[in-house]
Design a protein around this nucleic acid. Sequence first.
DNA 1: CGGAGATCGAACCGATCGGTACGATCTCGA
DNA 2: TCGAGATCGTACCGATCGGTTCGATCTCCG
Lengths: 199, 199
Amino acid sequence: MPVPKGSTIDPERTRAAILEAATAVLYERGLDGVGVAELCALIGVSKETLYRHFGTKDGLVEAMLRARSERVTRWLAEASAAAGDDPRDQLAAVFDALREWYQDPVFRGCAMLNAAAQHHVEPVRAITARHLDRYLDLLTGIAERAGAADPPLLGRQLLMLVEGATVVAAHHGTAGTGEQARQAALALLSAASRDGGGD
Amino acid sequence: MPVPKGSTIDPERTRAAILEAATAVLYERGLDGVGVAELCALIGVSKETLYRHFGTKDGLVEAMLRARSERVTRWLAEASAAAGDDPRDQLAAVFDALREWYQDPVFRGCAMLNAAAQHHVEPVRAITARHLDRYLDLLTGIAERAGAADPPLLGRQLLMLVEGATVVAAHHGTAGTGEQARQAALALLSAASRDGGGD
DNA sequence: CGGAGATCGAACCGATCGGTACGATCTCGA
DNA sequence: TCGAGATCGTACCGATCGGTTCGATCTCCG
């Protein structure tokens, strides 16, 4: 029971607890795979409380996607930064982090992409697009520091690789996916640096 | 009105017409984005007829996904085969075909991946996994004929690139995506052939 | 101690959903 | 011409959904 009853009545803490618990359930079962009533029962909160904090099921979904996008992006950025100054190591660290994620038993693909495939509504699509933007920024930065001939191009190609690896890991098996993607990413980086931009 | 009323009462033709019309609607609106009643109204068929042919909405969905997976895979394979004997041209042709698809106004990503993100049920997941298998076969074949050092590895990396490009095109904009993916694929092919497998 | 507000639990609402039933209509083949 | 069967249109069913309301309870703070 993640939300400890009335306990200390701190609305902000309640909201955060709902968000965290709901994220896990909705990610595992799908946005439409669990109704509000069951969701409230699972996370131990009344419907009135949930609706006062988020107004709508869609409101909860959007808040959850926003928080998750920021969290996972920050996680990848930190993994990259912790790898040192060599852009090549930074890129490898990104895919090592992804590989770790793929092996998590609760891994079910990118929550933002899954959500966009279910809710065709505009806010969700915008959050998903922004999520890909965050990834693109991270990857393009690596491409720039690596001296790629065309950093925006390489950034977008790496974005495809990241998202493709996630999709393949989710729907075709996680075995080796992270490592294979890592090798491909480094190969692309090498080719992009060698072909014309070794300044 | 795709289903021409009672017309010639040919059950097989009716079934095929339902399948084709329903595919377009369900792909555009999402599997849960349109109910059976509205779906029947849109494609001009009664609920009884639809249920006699497919038994269940899920039955219709599965039949539609199976047909679509075969159709799109055959389309890619033919585009590849039509490019001649050079594996490099064949790979480029695959991504040219994808680029064409991305520019279609009704393009909304891979129907099988979208479906798997919505219906967590087993049959849909199996169809999606099999769909990726088909793609993998096509790409691994190209990798083999190109003399890659490790064709299964390159095949899977190309699979990630195909799916990643489709995801990015669907959720981050189609501009340039096909061409960028094509360049990346050819770069991977070159690297895989040069690195250790120039047979 | 007392009031404000957060929370609970359960009842309740209208809408929609997937699926069924039925009588009428149409086409085709014997 | 007549019967079998495919189809239509509509009404209907039970279940579930998202969302609201309300009285009771609890915690905090003055």
